[in-house]
Write a protein that binds this DNA or RNA. Structure first.
Lengths: 149, 149
DNA sequence: TGCGATTAAATCGCGAACGATTTATTTTAC
DNA sequence: GTAAAATAAATCGTTCGCGATTTAATCGCA
């Protein structure tokens, strides 16, 4: 089938949509992550928030939101749940009380070790080797940049 | 940086995660779609449900769910909203009353024309040409299959 | 100094998304 | 022919995710 056929065809098919491939791959990833994250007591969004804090502790809500591409209206409840789990503490910045600083607790830091088993599982489930995965990841990140432009 | 460095490094960075690339690209796509779909009065999930029905009318909830990789618990409320919008009708199958058949109304069918302007906008926003987009889409669909295996 | 503009986070309402359960129907196995 | 198993949707409770709004603090500038 000609690559231009989905433009010429009167009815675009679901499988022609890049957005649907990404949308459904995202759901598929969630399903693979679910049992792995259940073992840590985290949801996926909570997990990537922790990954961001493991990479750099003591960030503001705004800084986390910028890295995760999430609004404070999404992040605030997620962070409250992480705090309720005892993994982080949230406190107003003394120098600028508008900002809230998020810091890992000892428990939160310790969780990183247990989370180290996850990426290899995902790599395995992806059916890709490290090089292919890295290339695909980069292409998708580039697409994201274009879309946000 | 060596491609294997994110395995050897003690702290995996957010940008090393394929899942995060897909997760955030999905959100970025949603943001591009939002204003386009607002004009049609649809959400993204409602839109892909309509795309599926434009491709083939008169499907059961189960068949739609299979194609969209969604559960009935997600789909039922989405379809109810599409019905409330007057775009579809839902009715129990006479031959097997367990199933609910979903059919387009004239309004729902007519909407396809107005939706035709959307894919070119997305192609443009993606910064990709048709060949690149098709290749990337296929790679991501392959990844999805591996993950669901 | 002081007051309007800006910034940061939180709140609220709505629509996904899922797992677990429930309800209703059909199939099957005896 | 009926009771048990299986199937299809729907319902319920929880967590995202966003836009719009609100609250509170800081900045800017006259």
């Amino acid at each position: 089938m000609d690559h231009a056929s989905n433009v010429e065809r009167d009815t675009a098919k679901l499988d022609d949509f890049l957005c649907f491939a990404i949308y459904s791959a995202n759901h598929a990833l969630n399903r693979v992550y679910k049992p792995l994250l259940d073992a840590l007591g985290l949801t996926y969004t909570q997990y990537i928030a922790m990954v961001t804090l493991w990479e750099r502790d003591d960030q503001t809500v705004g800084s986390l939101g910028e890295k995760l591409f999430l609004e404070s209206s999404t992040l605030t409840p997620v962070l409250k749940r992480l705090e309720a789990l005892g993994l982080i503490v949230r406190a107003r910045d003394k120098a600028d009380e508008r900002q809230v600083r998020v810091q890992l607790t000892a428990t939160g830091r310790a969780l990183q070790d247990r989370a180290k088993t996850i990426p290899p599982c995902i790599l395995e489930a992806s059916g890709l080797d490290m090089n292919e995965l890295t290339r695909l990841k980069t292409e998708i990140a580039t697409l994201r940049s274009s879309l946000l432009r």
